[in-house]
């Protein structure tokens, strides 16, 4: 019997690597909660959003295997995030700078 099915290019990730990423995610959660307890003023929003973005990148790249997918997946993801960023930026032109 021949192998009629498409070849898998799927990457297999070890449990150890997943657990490492999970520990990293927990550490970032600890950092963001601790920072929220300190009065950082305006920086609170920026630091918490930066940490949330780093956590999302870890989930996207490793848990969701984006790092190991075709280039096309990454371009799509970038376009999606860029679209949302443009929406938010353009909205603020109406509110922040008038």
């Amino acid at each position: 019997m021949s192998q009629p099915e498409e070849q898998h290019t799927q990457h297999s990730i070890s449990y150890g690597r997943y657990i490492l990423i999970w520990l990293g995610l927990l550490a970032f959660t600890g950092i963001t909660v601790t920072l929220a307890g300190i009065d950082l003023g305006r920086w609170v929003i920026i630091t918490s959003l930066v940490i949330a973005s780093v956590k999302s990148l870890l989930v996207l790249n490793i848990f969701m295997h984006l790092k190991f997918e075709d280039k096309m997946f990454k371009i799509f993801a970038l376009v999606a995030v860029a679209t949302l960023t443009i929406f938010i930026t353009l909205t603020f032109f109406d509110y922040a700078f008038y």
């Binding site: 009629p4 498409e6 799927q10 997918e69 799509f76 993801a77 999606a80 949302l84």
Partner: peptide
């Protein structure tokens, strides 16, 4: 026995759906 399968395409479809979810929450 000759079943056509395209796992990469299936996953890409899922990702496209997730982008609509991103815009919904966005």
């Amino acid at each position: 026995t000759h079943t056509h399968r395209d796992d990469v395409g299936s996953r890409m479809g899922m990702w496209l759906f997730l982008f609509t979810e991103l815009i919904l929450f966005g």
